[in-house]
Design a binder for these strands. Structure first.
Lengths: 248, 248
DNA sequence: TCCCATGCTTGACCTTTATCATACTGCAAA
DNA sequence: TTTGCAGTATGATAAAGGTCAAGCATGGGA
C-alpha cells in the first residue's frame, strides 16, 4: 500500500548524533564512528510507511533516529502480533538474518527518521573495526532478551500486570533517552498496545481508566503521566499475597 | 541444587558428528571443521542438571548433541516461562550475549550430551574462518525468529491452536533430524508443555484427550503418534470459518 | 464549516480456560 | 512388597477477560 523509503534523504553524521551511544553502546572511538558515518544513510519516513515487509530480502539494518517503529509477525491464519516498539537509538531488522528474508514487517507509528545501514557495508566494517562484531552480537543479544521478557509477559501475566509492565518499560526507555520518565506521549494506539500485550482493546481501555481511578496514572488519550511509580511496580511484583501461581 | 557440568567428559569430533549441518548449517568445509573441533568439548549432563543459570557469567555456547534442554526466564514475582526446548543440533546460550551474564537458565529434561563452545575461542575462530561470523548471525537470527513465532502463539492463539502448533513444530524438527515425524516421545512433561504454551496443565491434558478422541493423534503419556497431520494443520489455519479475529 | 472515519470509552453479557478437588498410574525408595 | 510421590487425567465451578453493542471525541478533508 505505502511506498518504502523513497522520501527525501537527509545525510546525517553519527559522530554528532545524540543516539550513537544507544545504537552501538560504548564500543567505538571517533575514528571508528567516522567509518560508520560513511555507510549510514538517513531517511525520513512517513507515518504508517514500511521500512520493510515480511518476505522482503534483507539488505540493511535500520536505526531509529526519531519517531517510533513497530515490528509485526504474521501467521498463515492471518493473525498478527506486534513483537516490538522501537524507539530512537534502537536497531531494527535482525529478523532477516536467519534466511536473508525478513520474517517481520516494520512500520512507523508516526513520521520518523531512520538511518539505513546496508548489510554488505556493515560486514566490511565489522572486519575493519575490532569490537564492532562484538557490539553487533551484544545488540542481537538484547533483542533476544527483550523477546524473552515479552514471552514472560504474554505467558504468565494477567491484564493489569501486563499494562503496568508496559508502562514501566516505556518509562524506563524514556529515562534512558533523558526524557521525562513520568510524563510522555505514547506513539501507539490502544489497538497496538492491546495487540502487543495480547489483550482486547476494550480491556486496555478499561485498565487505563482503572489505573487512573486508583490514582496511579493520569491519562488523556495518548498522554500519560505516572503519578505513583511504586504502585505500578507493586502491581507486577504482587505474588497474589504470597500465594504461588499454579501455572508457573 | 544440581551441579553444573562436572560429569565425565567425552571428546567428540565435529567432523563426524551427524549434527554438524544443524549446528553450523552449510557454512564450513573440512578444514574449518577441524579448527572447530579443537575448541569444542563434549560433556554428558545428567537429567535436570543446569548448563547455566540466570545470573551466571556467559562463557560459552552449548550445542545439544543428544537429549533435550529447556531454557527458562524468570521475573521478580517468581513466575517463570519456558522460552525454548532445544533438540540435538541446536545452540543454546545466546541469552548471555547482551550483558555477558545469562538472562535464562538452561536445564536438561533428560540425560544429555552437550558440546561446549567457549566464547573466547569462538571469537578467535570467527576471525579466522570467513563465513563463520555470518553463520553465527544466521543462527541468532533463527533464535529471534523462533521467539517471534512463540510470541505469536502466546499472544494470538487459543488453547487447541497452541497445542496443534506445538505438535507440528516438534514433528517438523523430528523430520529435520531424519527421525519419524509422525511418532515420537516427548521429552518434556505436561507441566513443561503447559508452561511453554501459556496454559494450565489440566488444559493440556484435556486437549491431548480431545485430540485423541477426534482421531487426530494417539497418545500414551509421553508417546505421541500423529494420525491425521492435515487435521492438526487445519486447527491452526482455521480462521473461525472466514471471520476475522477481533484481537488481531 | 461541517461531515465522516477512526479511535477511544463504557456497559452488558458470554466464552474460554484457570482453579479446585479428587483419583489413577507407575516408578523409586524403604 | 509396601509406601510415597510425581505425573497425569477428569469433573465441577468460577473468574478473567473477550465479544458485542452503543455512544462520544477528534481531527483531517471536502
Amino acid at each position: 500500500m505505502n511506498k518504502v523509503l523513497n522520501i527525501e534523504k537527509l545525510k546525517v553524521s553519527c559522530k554528532q548524533c545524540s543516539l550513537k551511544e544507544l545504537c552501538f553502546p560504548h564500543g567505538m572511538d571517533g575514528d571508528d564512528i567516522t567509518k560508520l558515518d560513511n555507510v549510514v544513510d538517513a531517511h525520513s519516513v512517513k507515518k504508517n510507511d514500511y521500512l520493510y515487509r515480511e518476505g522482503d530480502v534483507c539488505r540493511a539494518l535500520y536505526a531509529v533516529r526519531s519517531g517510533c517503529v513497530k515490528t509485526t509477525v504474521q501467521n498463515a491464519a492471518g493473525d498478527s502480533q506486534i513483537v516490538g516498539f522501537h524507539l530512537p537509538g534502537e536497531l531494527v531488522g535482525f529478523d532477516g538474518f536467519a534466511t536473508d528474508v525478513h520474517a517481520c514487517s516494520a512500520q512507523t507509528l508516526e513520521t520518523a527518521s531512520v538511518c539505513e545501514l546496508p548489510l554488505d557495508n556493515l560486514e566490511n566494517l565489522c572486519a575493519n573495526i575490532p569490537g564492532l562484531q562484538k557490539q553487533m552480537r551484544r545488540i542481537m543479544g538484547i533483542e533476544v532478551n527483550n523477546d524473552h521478557e515479552l514471552l514472560l509477559l504474554l505467558g504468565k501475566m494477567n491484564a493489569d500486570e501486563k499494562l503496568a509492565t508496559f508502562l514501566l518499560n516505556v518509562s524506563l526507555r524514556m529515562k534512558q533517552r533523558n526524557w521525562k520518565e513520568d510524563e510522555f506521549n505514547l506513539s501507539m494506539s490502544r489497538q497496538d498496545i492491546a495487540n502487543y500485550l495480547g489483550l482486547a482493546v476494550e480491556t486496555v481501555s478499561r485498565l487505563f481508566a482503572q489505573f487512573q481511578d486508583n490514582g496511579i496514572i493520569k491519562v488523556d488519550k495518548r498522554h500519560v503521566e505516572i503519578i505513583n511509580m511504586a504502585a505500578l511496580r507493586e502491581i507486577i511484583s504482587d505474588c497474589q499475597g504470597g500465594t504461588q501461581q499454579r501455572n508457573g
